[in-house]
Design a binder for these strands. Structure first.
Lengths: 98, 98
DNA sequence: TCAATATGTCACCGTTCGATGACCTACCCA
DNA sequence: TGGGTAGGTCATCGAACGGTGACATATTGA
């Protein structure tokens, strides 16, 4: 599953929790956070701490991986010339919400 | 690359930034955060906001994915009986640093 | 060597975090 | 009908956030 936003992450966490038949309180206890935190994160809270997120993911028995986008043919072609890639990245990132 | 801790994440971000020939200030500007934030995150700050992390990752042209650990035989076997899996998860999570 | 560039540190500040505990729905099922 | 369970909300609080700007300390290249 691909994660782009905190909402994606929240949905993934909720799905996985339910798959394991855990309620919010069980998960909260195992991760060492409050039940409220679980609720907020599952709703996609963008300011949740990365450390707690990572612990939650580990408790859920899930693996988080980071890959360069060199997999698809187009992306591989682009990355073959790093400078061009930088330009594309800058363009995509321009005018992002602060 | 596998991410288990905020330190893993920080290293990955720094590596990727250098690969793209960006200095901390460039990256900070593109993500919309302060240079100090980049410094902290690259050092593995565990309380950094997930939303900012995700934006950083996108600017760096990297993909974050979440996979269940159902790939190896042992894990597949375990997940076939959710209740047993929960016990293993609890045991692994016990006595985690708060 | 020197100066430019990159990186790291500091104190200050307003904002938001996450924990807590109480309360409120909904839902199920006996 | 009632009670149990799961999920969501609220107010409060101390702690830490992230931004800012100035100041150190590498690191690099001429």
């Amino acid at each position: 599953m691909l994660l782009r936003t905190p909402t994606d992450l929240g949905s993934a966490i909720r799905d996985r929790r339910r798959r394991l038949n855990l309620d919010q309180e069980d998960l909260a206890n195992q991760v060492g956070v409050s039940r409220k935190w679980i609720i907020d994160v599952e709703k996609g809270k963008p300011r949740a701490e990365i450390g707690l997120i990572l612990r939650t993911i580990e408790v859920l028995g899930v693996r988080l991986s980071l890959d360069t986008n060199e997999m698809t043919p187009e992306e591989t072609a682009t990355l073959a010339v790093p400078v061009a890639d930088i330009d594309r990245i800058i363009e995509r990132a321009r005018d992002k919400p602060a």
